[in-house]
Design a protein around this nucleic acid. Structure first.
Lengths: 342, 342
DNA sequence: TGATTTAATTGAACCGGTTCAAATTAGAGG
DNA sequence: CCTCTAATTTGAACCGGTTCAATTAAATCA
């Protein structure tokens, strides 16, 4: 194990000078710097992260924690949405040398323990949160600690939180308008799990949009899903069993939309003709689906990149200057899973 | 910032004793331990990771690095396969307190730099590698450093590397047999990118299987893909343009199979009747595809979990006792994208 | 050339834990 | 009650960097 003192000895300088070279301080003479650099090169020296971290208080690592709302097994499917987010963050971090550390934790008491360990134990420089709950204990905790973090999803309990969100209400409005224009009057709605904040925001959008286009909401056509294909499938069967089934259904993510389409197809219905389906997210496979899915498009990977950038500025402490909140307007990508009612 | 000395003072003991309590050493009297624990509780003390790491040499973090073979933009799609792997590792790590740190790096000189920083700078306790190349500089480096790592994919340059792999040759064999039994004689083959080790292994499986079922390989029906939908689509068009097109095609991952199916469908062909398509991976969406994809199933998330477990034992140093190499037999999941030739 | 200012360099102290030889205390035995 | 051994506890040294006041070297000026 080569240390900074080995380098200092070889270069014939003090450790302080080596440290200055490492941190590209300007107060080292060029000639000296070069001598040190070649010593570093010769020994293939790399500073120990922990030692550096101990007094700079920086880890060059940011964290994300996925909370498993429902205990899952390895059998269950992962959500491409979250993974895309990770991917976006990680891609944005290329070249910065910053790593993204990821934990999965069951919901419950262990959750806040983990956050305490990360924050108080200085394991990461900042955190990216997602899947915000109504009053989110994680956010409350991070605020009391004054720890750098950003959130994917609005948090309006206060106005000190930095977040980026997609305007879900607007997205749902686009979907409703589209279906109404096609002539649909009986529109089903498969909502996100209620514990998530966005469920309420999107519901408000749904209510407002339905009123705007002059349609009444039939409570029998609205139900709650949990973002899995399975729940989309069940939801669709449930709605189609109803005496007055909907001619179109809005699913709050693409996975549920896929499940819903599968259910319709299993009953011999042609999606886009006999029944229309709209999704939300526009995950990569949506456009390859059969038929291609009409869906509200949110640029997940770009959002990951934005979150990374925002967190960087929060960590650097210049989050007052830049845009600290952003509401992204999603777009509706019309494909062939929607059409005029039969 | 509360330190171990604050705790010691409050509990009226020395720092050494507090440290012993933290590491649940047996040589602390029960009564003392309790006094310390309540002091810890009272101060909500959490040891600083860096300080601990500095002399234990442990970070409680493992790493994965994705190398971008081709510079991609945020537009490009992420591979659900890799993300599933991450997901499997992360899920296996639940409750261990171990975090998974993820970096994305362009291929090239920066790559080995990053590995040096991680290893020599003691940023992680171990690494999980994937997408092995024929003579892999990363593996060679890690071996010279004697650093704990495990590999998804065989590495046979030596016999000191711990790996878990799927028997790709066997998987391809299953696919060939299946198609031959259905009566196909002209079988197309869309291979993985040649820089990856598994491309060769699977090709050997293809050759052997074709010989076994008594079919000749037509070089015009074999081409190289790059694992994207796009390359599957192009590949299929290319093969169908041939004067004697294949009646079935084996794609080396599901994404390429999806692209291939799309191309066939765009030409008005019915997949499973006019042309058969087989995939590889069995990503979650394969069975929801239209038509559902016949594919070689590899349990990606379980493999992630196994890799995590194996790495744990390598780090602990007891990798000599347990099974350090595993070749997983994949299964063929027959769905409706394959059928008798027209 | 000598005095003064400015640029470079030094190295001890510190970051917050763990370790372990040495000191202290408790318990057992006579 | 005293001695001896085992069980606890102590605290200074150490892990490998960074920091910064103090020192030394170089540059500038009269």
């Amino acid at each position: 194990m080569t240390t900074i003192r080995d380098v200092a000895k070889l270069a014939g300088v003090s450790v302080g000078t080596v440290s200055n070279v490492l941190n590209s301080s300007s107060l080292v003479r060029t000639e000296t710097r070069e001598r040190v650099l070649s010593a570093i090169e010769a020994l293939n020296y790399h500073p120990t992260a922990a030692a550096r971290s101990l007094n700079t208080q920086l880890t060059y690592t940011i964290g994300m924690v996925r909370t498993e709302l429902r205990p899952s097994t390895l059998q269950s499917e992962s959500d491409p949405f979250i993974l895309d987010l990770i991917d976006g963050v990680s891609t944005a971090a290329i070249g910065t040398g910053i790593g993204l550390t990821f934990w999965t934790i069951p919901v419950g008491s262990q959750e806040i323990d983990l956050y305490e360990r990360l924050v108080l134990g200085r394991q990461v420089d900042g955190l990216i949160l997602f899947a915000v709950r109504d009053t989110d204990p994680r956010i409350e905790f991070l605020k009391t600690q004054n720890f750098p973090f950003v959130v994917f999803g609005r948090y309006e309990q206060d106005d000190t939180t930095n977040w980026i969100d997609v305007d879900g209400a607007h997205g749902i409005t686009l979907a409703v308008r589209h279906l109404a224009e096609l002539g649909h009057t009986r529109i089903g709605y498969l909502s996100p799990p209620r514990e998530q904040r966005l469920a309420h925001l999107r519901w408000e959008g749904f209510e407002a949009a339905m009123a705007e286009v002059g349609l009444k909401i039939d409570p029998a056509l609205t139900l709650e899903g949990d973002f899995t294909e399975h729940s989309g499938q069940l939801g669709m069967h449930y709605l189609l069993d109803y005496s007055q089934p909907p001619t179109a259904i809005i699913c709050n993510n693409d996975r549920m939309a896929f499940g819903a389409m599968r259910a319709a197809q299993a009953r011999g219905l042609k999606v886009g003709r006999d029944v229309s389906v709209v999704g939300f997210d526009d995950i990569p496979l949506a456009r390859y689906w059969h038929p291609p899915l009409t869906t509200v498009s949110q640029p997940t990977r770009e959002i990951g990149a934005m979150l990374f950038g925002l967190l960087q500025s929060v960590i650097a402490g210049d989050d007052t200057t830049s845009e600290t909140r952003q509401l992204i307007k999603p777009e509706l990508h019309v494909r062939s899973s929607t059409g005029k009612p039969a």
